[in-house]
Design a protein around this nucleic acid. Structure first.
Length: 157
DNA sequence: CGTATTTGACCAGCGC
DNA sequence: GCGCTGGTCAAATACG
């Protein structure tokens, strides 16, 4: 499971799988045309790696569908049943909390997700998923499944 | 010793 | 064209 050994602020050890989804500001964007301001799909495939598919990128930079939702949770990383490897962390403007970048550790699976806390309300975590898993979940999480059901999202994203 | 995380550097897109 | 901002890489480090 996810090692939550690192607590950035406060003392959160308690198991809080009871994360509450906040709908009002949860956004579900299937694709981005180009008028996005805050978030853009700058996949920017590196030329040194991932040289396989990607038929032709001549169109746009638009890559994977993605959706975001907010939860009120003590821990940054919700257990959604998948294994994630952190590959970056960046400070975003107008937000005292850093944004973390994760990739699915499953081979061949290019699903990514970002996690960041809301500025002004450190109790709210914004999780953004990007892409579709090619593999079933490792350790199913009932709670998370319930959340996705509420949002009309199906388990294999 | 293998795998995951940390962290600064690097890069691309956008606005001015 | 330049600088800011966000996203990713990769070497070093931590951890089991």
């Amino acid at each position: 499971m996810l090692p939550l050994h690192r607590t950035r602020r406060g003392e959160q050890d308690m198991e809080d799988r009871s994360c509450q989804v906040l709908f009002p500001s949860s956004l579900v964007d299937h694709r981005l045309s180009g008028d996005q301001t805050q978030i853009n799909t700058s996949s920017s495939l590196p030329q040194r790696n991932t040289n396989q598919e990607e038929k032709h990128k001549s169109k746009k930079k638009e890559r994977d569908a993605r959706f975001a939702f907010q939860t009120r949770s003590q821990v940054d990383i919700l257990d959604d049943g998948y294994r994630w490897r952190k590959y970056g962390q960046k400070a975003v403007k107008n937000n005292p909390f850093p944004r973390s970048y994760y990739k699915c550790t499953e081979k061949g699976c290019r699903v990514k997700k970002q996690v960041q806390r809301l500025s002004g309300d450190e109790g709210v975590v914004v999780t953004t998923y990007q892409g579709v898993h090619t593999h079933p979940v490792d350790t199913p999480s009932d709670n998370f499944h319930h959340i996705l059901t509420q949002m009309h999202i199906f388990p294999p994203f």
